[in-house]
Design a binder for these strands. Sequence first.
RNA 1: GGCGGCAUAGCCAAGCGGUAAGGCAGUGGUUUGCAAAACCUCCAUUCCCCAGUUCAAAUCUGGGUGCCGCCUCCA
Length: 492
Amino acid sequence: MSGLKVFNTLTSKKEDFVPLQAGKVNLYSCGPTVYDLSHLGHARKEINFDVIQRYIRFSGYNLTYVRNITDIDDKIINRAREVDERTEKLARRFTFTFWKDMDALNVAPPDIEPRATEFIKPMMAFVEDLIKKGHAYASGGDVYFDVLSFKDYGKLRKQSIEDLLHGARDQVRSQTELKEIKKNPVDFALWKSAPTTEMGWESPWGWGRPGWHLECSTMIKHALGTTIDIHGGGEDLIFPHHENEIAQSEALHDQPLAKYWLHNSFVQVDAEKMSKSLGNFQTIQSVLASYSPDTVRLFVLQTHYRSPIEFSGESVEAAKAGTARLLRAARYAKDDEAHSSVLKNGKAHKYLSADHPCLTSLRDNEQGGDVIRKLHADFVEAMDNDFNTPQAISALFAVADLIFSSKDENLAAIYAAGLKAYAGVLGLTLTDTGKIIDSQTGAQLVERLLDLRDAARANKDYKQSDQIRDTLQALGIKVMDVKGGRAQWEKD
RNA sequence: GGCGGCAUAGCCAAGCGGUAAGGCAGUGGUUUGCAAAACCUCCAUUCCCCAGUUCAAAUCUGGGUGCCGCCUCCA
């Protein structure tokens, strides 16, 4: 159906993308744990997978995208205790800010967005089934997955159980209390007992909470089935999170959990991972205070999703300047009826496939069609190659060059429509943010106009000064002179 | 200690066997009342180092050096 190739963490190879069912793709990516504001690193992951889902749809597949929200977890409970807030309320609060951040970044919402707390019963059933099958055991109110019972353990990160035991020895030794109740140091919790004073649920093993890895396995099973096409997340989730998901799901179903595993790399600061613990993070909100969503997107997408991004003031400024150039080129587009739906594509909730009439008409256009066809070919070649967004973006800049150097306005308009449409597949809106001014700047502009008016009045040039007042009045700003002083003004 | 990854111009960053994309910054021009924007021009004989394979290597192999990630929560 398409020539898409993806790099599969499971095989460490770039493979032809062939969905399990022709024309249909199930995608799952691990969403946030809602205990704090999201930072640029989280934004990167969501933008990368947003582009992946947009491009898969663009390629003509019928995609179902599922992304979970982890709304019960030790981190949430600890944070709630710190700030003296109900656990559920804290989780809800940060779920909301996550949604706001994603909307601001033009990250389209997933088709299904399950929350862990909605899946407690199915998770318990999942654990019971694993116990029945001999892959898990209850111990001291906890339930652990018996890693030795699953022969493929370690296949995602490519490390044998022996290696893991050997390598992990130092860490595990310190957990003396766990040593008592776990059969094997590498066994991981499916269900964790908790004091009844803490948030939890009554289970066959007593009061407690589900282990983190369990929710994804359970949600995938219920939302998408036993085997999905693509499972993704940040590369730090490869081990143990995704390895453990594989163990749980495949031990229970005897079917592969996912055909392709995709992992994005990190945002770095001074060559170090941006993270909460290092304190070198920028929240999405703080970045968006200074930079437009398109700038953040271009910044993220100018690096391939599997390579680390070096964040610095200089590198973001470069993205800002690049975005400005694309924006100026996009201004050449005519906002007519025929293109309006293409242009809206940049905004979330609407997706275009490559054969949508809006795009085919651009490509088939006698005038300028050759350029759009070239853009299409370059764009698809880049994106088919494991979502090579940096290369796809260079194709966008090539069109921008043609727009600026074109002497023909109609031709430039067609190129610009193409530019906006294909940029939209990357989630770039190319919205003309350069013409949106904030209220503070607006107030200053009024003051400067009044300066000019004062100057005119001082020269007794009342024609000019009245004209300024009338102009402001027409814009809904009332000017009231004050005897011997500066005029007052207010919005009508 | 175990496992994995990365080193490409001032900065960011593609390319992964066929002779160095793109963005930003910078250079010299054109345009402009002056700017900005735009246009034209220039800007890595070379891809961390050393060997090797090959007609051909930034790309493959071996050995160094440096950096990072995971193994504990992590996008």
